[in-house]
């Protein structure tokens, strides 16, 4: 599941170069998110020398007969409604000649993803960064959830950071390619998007009526990853990750997750249920308040999981 990051000049078609070279220069690929989601590259606006990030959304050839696909409409219209200091700002959608049917998104540029940051041996105490990190990440998430939007694909690659004097000066959530707005009528949601390592148990168990709590779970995994300096749950597919989750947090029971057995009969096969491990032993460096918040974010039952707004009020995050 490793995303391939190859630095260099982005691979664009001649038409795409024609659109952007008149106004932009100094192109450099920063993240590749696979052919479906497009590459993110950085470039400089010729007029103001401002550095921006750009992403090109292309209509897949097999979907062209249906016009602009829902995925692109949803992605861009969600970005257009968002305005928060902890969410990567969409500056503009380039207007192109109608012969070019790609959609060019221009974002503010933030230098490093959490994934890159965690992979570099920084001389920084990551534990100390835990609080400011969570505060900013959760305020971005609380804002999204109030807007009734689920991100659905939170992972270290989609959290951008910039630093000043060894402290996080900016944190921005990005990549709303599979975000979903929850408005009635509620049709069953897709459960197939996102990296399995950060997927909530209700998604891995196949529940289609999930909600904003799936983002809190992912954020819990990411917070844990910052402390451990490696992903909390490692595996290539859903069943492997689910096993890892149950080994750490125990199997869900009717007591701690009402209704789980009727929706997912194989849970009853764990008899007696697996007992949860002691989180304090797993995270010896984390203070008790931090452990308490982490355990509430990694609560198996989505209805009992802490919300972003509640988490911001948690003693661990109080100034």
């Amino acid at each position: 599941m490793e995303e391939i990051v190859h630095l260099g000049i982005p691979f664009l078609t001649p038409d795409q170069w024609d659109v952007i070279t008149p106004a932009y220069k100094d192109f450099e690929l920063i993240r590749s998110e696979g052919p479906r989601f497009g590459d993110m590259f950085k470039c400089k606006l010729k007029s103001t020398k401002e550095v921006v990030a750009m992403k090109i959304l292309t209509i897949p050839e097999d979907q062209k007969s249906n016009g602009i696909p829902y995925s692109i409409l949803n992605h861009v219209s969600i970005l257009k409604t968002l305005n928060h200091p902890n969410i990567l700002k969409l500056h503009t959608v380039l207007r192109t000649d109608l012969d070019v049917e790609d959609v060019f998104l221009v974002f503010e540029y933030i230098d490093v993803s959490l994934k890159k940051f965690l992979a570099t041996p920084f001389p920084i105490d990551v534990i100390k960064l835990g609080k400011p990190f969570l505060r900013q990440a959760l305020s971005g998430l609380a804002y999204l959830h109030v807007q009734k939007i689920i991100h659905r694909n939170l992972k270290p690659n989609n959290i951008l950071l910039s630093f000043q004097n060894h402290e996080i000066s900016k944190l921005k959530l990005t990549d709303f390619g599979v975000a979903k707005s929850i408005e009635p009528p509620l049709s069953p949601y897709s459960i197939n998007m996102g990296n399995p390592c950060y997927k909530a148990p209700e998604l891995l168990l196949g529940f289609t009526n999930y909600s904003t709590a799936v983002d809190i779970w992912s954020m819990g995994c990411i917070f844990a990853e910052m402390i451990k300096l490696q992903p909390l749950f490692i595996g290539n597919d859903g069943p492997k990750i689910l096993t890892e989750i149950f080994c750490l947090l125990g199997t869900p029971t009717e007591e701690n997750w009402p209704g789980v057995a009727s929706l997912c009969s194989f849970i009853q096969a764990f008899d007696p249920p697996i007992k949860p491990k002691d989180l304090a032993a797993e995270f010896p460096k984390l203070e008790p308040d931090g452990l308490d918040l982490l355990s509430r974010m990694l609560c198996l039952c989505p209805n009992s999981r802490i919300s972003a707004v509640e988490a911001l009020e948690h003693p661990y995050l109080r100034p």
């Binding site: 062209k64 602009i68 219209s77 257009k80």
Partner: peptide
Amino acid sequence: EPKTIRRMELLVLSILDWRLR
């Protein structure tokens, strides 16, 4: 034709500044 409508969709989107919600 689908191609004509697709281009009209793009024009509408740019006029509406992609604010569909």
